[in-house]
Write a protein that binds this DNA or RNA. Structure first.
Lengths: 139, 139
DNA sequence: ATTGACCTGCAACTTTGTTGCAAAAGTTAT
DNA sequence: ATAACTTTTGCAACAAAGTTGCAGGTCAAT
């Protein structure tokens, strides 16, 4: 478990530090995506606000986590799959945000549909964010 | 033209004020979506920062404009189509952001594809944001 | 024109994110 | 294990983004 996390860091040429291990743990424990604020709340006493910002930035650059576009424009982060390499994200999955509990899921097995663009527009990436009610809140 | 704008405001039970008219003009003049910062830049000397924030909020509530999710999580706003009523947005169109010039387009004629959600997940809304190169920047 | 409701600007504040630098930790080679 | 080197952290200070309360001004309806 702890070695998994250490290996992930080493694989990305990052030194293994307490804050990085701790923040990665948060992601592994959580079902879904996390905001800076939530992480700060969970590890807040241990580490400085600035450290969390910088750690998240580093993780995004290295392809360990990715950001998720949201309609309310808060910044959410989630773990990338193995395939993501430095500087090249290809998290081609649909994101789902529950209107009830606010959890953001990465739906890895739902494929991104292709959209037909007007003439002259060249496609590079498609982000799909679905909102609704998740399995846990559905009664 | 000016009467169009006034009517739009009246139809939404909003009093017709200079700042509201001016901000709506900005949207009509522009091809695409606008950020708070861009609007402030265009009308900045005339109106207070706070007024712009509150005007945009009001417009979103009334269904005159809508927010657009972006991968860099900056807040962008664009005009809604006639169909949007108070508190109920249904801007079911694809958004396109040009990586080159940064312009955000509402592609009204591109239909939102339907996605197959896992069991237990209930769909309410789908947001699709495509990035790439737009017709103007494509050489 | 007067009244009442609504809108605006100002000031102060909170929240969010960034930068520079010195101290502390991690890493590598001996 | 230790020394030397590199990287990361915490602090402080700052910058940017967004919010709130209130007094004064504007708008709409009579």
């Amino acid at each position: 478990m702890t070695t998994d996390i250490s290996n992930l860091l080493k694989r990305n040429q990052l030194s293994v530090t307490n804050s990085r291990k701790r923040i990665l743990e948060c992601f592994h424990k959580s079902d879904g995506a996390l905001t800076h604020a939530v992480i700060e709340q969970q590890v807040g006493e241990e580490f400085d606000r600035v450290t969390i910002y910088r750690t998240l930035q580093t993780f995004v650059e290295k392809g360990i986590i990715h950001t998720i576009p949201t309609t309310d424009n808060s910044v959410k982060y989630a773990l990338c799959k193995e395939a993501c390499s430095e500087g090249h994200h290809h998290d081609n999955h649909v994101h789902f945000i529950c209107d009830d509990c606010g959890t953001t899921y990465c739906l890895d097995h739902v494929t991104i549909p292709s959209v037909q663009l007007p003439n002259g527009f060249k496609h590079k990436q498609t982000d799909v964010v679905v909102s609704g009610v998740c399995e846990k809140c559905d009664n």
